[in-house]
Structure formats: C-alpha cells, structure tokens
C-alpha cells in the first residue's frame, strides 16, 4: 500500500472533519457505541439491550443489501439462523470458546451467502421470494428429524454451559461497531460509490469500469457475515433455542421494518429505527406480539405510501424546506 505523506494525511483528516456528512457519520458510530457502553448503568436488563444491538446489526445488514445494492432479501433470517447454528454447534461439538463461536457463526453466514450468490441473477420479486424460499428450506433441513444426530433436529440447542453475560454484551457492542464501520466505509469510499452506481444502472456502471458482479457479491457477503455473527450472538444470549426461533421469518421482517423506518442508504437511519422501534416492541409487543405486528404492518404501508426514504429522508426534506424558506425571506 502506498505511503501517504504526513502533510497530506493531515489535510485529508481536516477535509473529513470539514465535510459535514463525514463528521456527522463519525458521530453516528461513536454515539451508539458510547450509549450502549453506558446503558447497563441505567437499565438493568442487559439481555434486551443485547437483542437491541443484534437488531441494529440486522437493520444495517438490510441497509447494505437494500440501501446500497437495491436487493431486498426477505430471507435475510437464513444467515442469522445459519450463524446461530454454526456458532452453537462449534461450541458444543468442537468445544471452541464462545467468542470464537461468534466468528464461526459469521463464517456460517458467509458460506450460506456464497451458496445463494446465483440468486443475484434474479431481480425484484424473484430475488426477494427466492431468498425467502432458501431461508425456509435451510430451516426445514436443519430442523428435520432425520438430521437429529447432527443438528439435534427440531429439539433445538442448549448453550447454558457457555453463558457469560459480560462477554456476550461486549461482543454485541463490537459487532455493532463493526457493522457501523462497514456502512461508514460504504458511504464514503470508491467501493460504496460503485455500489450506488450499480444500483442505479448496472450496464452504465460496467461501462464506467465497475466489476458489477464482484462488487455486489462482496457487499452481499458482508451483509451475510454480519447476520451470521448477529445470529450466533443471539443464540449465545438466548441460551436455549429452537430452529423455529432463529429461522423465524419475522426476524427478516423486523430488520426490514427497522431499516426502512429509519431510512436506507444512510448510517443513522437503521440504527435509529432499530432503537426506537425495538423499544416500542419491548413496551408493547412482548406480551402481545400481534399488536406489534399490526403496528409494523401499518408502518410499512405508511412508509411506502408517504415516506419511502424513511425518517432520515423526511428530516432531510424538512430541513431543506426550512432552509430555502429562510433564504427566500432574506
């Protein structure tokens, strides 16, 4: 890698700080991490905070896939479940430390993601439903009684021996940091630029020299790996789980809603969506999941009809409107 002379490095840094969107995004990484670092001092339910972090990662994963490449995977939960199983089985059968299990969970997501790469030949509904079918098929295979000797079939996983609330919490924080860093990178790099170009027009992007298939696959595999790690942290924190819990389609749904609610393509949006809506979920939904399902169903419809760019989009337009109005007065 080329060595950057110190003076240019300094000027690059100042340019980053001066660039409003870059510094705003840097804050978007630091603030959530700091907040989750401090949160246990004020709120004792670490498990809920961990789940919230897991959903931030999932929402950012949807952001990478949908916000940057335009592909909406209804079967995103497939990677989550694959990660939960890969991590847990490594811990139970190979006796690796649980933290290593999280990385193996990421590898699980990565492998399933690679298997599904041919889905990118498809578009729109084909891709969305194809990915959902793939996730359901994976769930069916893992929970099949014929495979009980390998996956414990429908009887699930018990990770009680590996439980450690402190390690789980810190791992989740690190993973949130990682996912935010990836999205930051996508928003401010040539690679991210390529993805946005591909999303608009593949052929035109390839005529700009962009290797469409490769770039899009890398983004997809990043999203898959993140979901795999999120799934294995979820499994580790949940301790005892059944295949139906880690392959539940509503995990995809919730991640999509969180990401769309905040606004895809941005760094703040999915984090914001996950925090606000997951808090609402814990307040309303845990005892009565149908009320929450109703609420997020209505949110989806309202977003598509009235605010397809999410809360961040609404905030931007409002700010622009106030800004221009002020200008006109002067």
């Amino acid at each position: 890698m080329a060595k950057v002379p110190p003076r240019r490095l300094v000027s690059r840094f100042t340019r980053m700080v001066i660039d409003r969107s870059i510094s705003w995004d840097l804050v978007g990484i630091v603030v959530p991490i700091a907040a989750f670092g401090l949160a246990p001092k004020f709120y004792s339910n670490e498990l809920l905070l961990t789940y919230m972090m897991v959903y931030i990662v999932m929402a950012q994963g949807i952001n990478i896939s949908y916000g940057f490449t335009g592909y909406l995977p209804f079967g995103y939960v497939g990677f989550f479940g694959a990660g939960a199983y890969a991590g847990s089985l490594a811990v139970l059968d190979l006796h690796v430390p649980a933290i290593l299990g999280v990385l193996i969970g990421g590898v699980g997501g990565l492998l399933v993601g690679s298997l599904l790469l041919p889905l990118f030949r498809l578009r729109g509904a084909y891709f969305a439903i194809g990915s959902l079918a793939a996730a359901n098929a994976l769930a069916d295979i893992i929970s099949n009684p014929s495979l009980t000797s390998i996956t414990n079939g429908p009887y699930g996983i018990n990770l009680a021996s590996a439980y450690s609330s402190g390690e789980i919490y810190v791992s989740a924080m690190v993973l949130v940091g990682l996912s935010l860093a990836v999205v930051f990178y996508l928003r401010h790099s040539q690679f991210g630029l390529s993805l946005r170009a591909i999303k608009e027009d593949e052929y035109s992007a390839s005529m700009a020299g962009v290797n469409v298939v490769k770039q899009r696959s890398i983004a997809w595999l990043m999203a898959a790996t993140m979901a795999g790690m999120a799934g294995s942290i979820f499994g580790w924190a949940t301790t005892v789980f059944y295949p139906s819990a880690v392959f539940d389609t509503s995990i995809s749904v919730i991640s999509i809603v969180f990401a769309l609610f905040g606004g895809t393509g941005s760094l703040w949006g999915p984090t914001f969506g996950a925090i606000v809506l997951y808090s609402a979920y814990t307040a309303v939904g845990i005892s009565n999941p149908q009320y929450f399902q109703l609420i997020y169903g209505v949110i989806i419809i309202a977003l598509i009809l009235f605010a397809p760019k999410g809360i961040v989009g609404v905030a931007k337009t409002t700010r622009a409107r106030i800004f221009t109005r002020g200008k006109q007065v002067v």
Binding site: G70, L72, F74, G124, A125, A128, V253, I256, L260, Q290, Y291, Q293, L294, Y296, G297, V298, I299, I300, I301, I304, L305, P308
Partner: peptide, 19 residues
C-alpha cells in the same frame, strides 16, 4: 422503484391482515 416498493407494500398488507 415501483416493483420493490409494491412488494414491500403488500408485505405490510400481509402483516396487517395476519395481525
């Protein structure tokens, strides 16, 4: 992006009906 948006929209409708 009518196609993906309509997909998500009817997904929302599906959730509301189920709930």
């Amino acid at each position: 992006d009518m196609e993906t948006l309509s997909l998500v929209l009817f997904f929302g409708v599906s959730q509301v009906i189920e709930a």
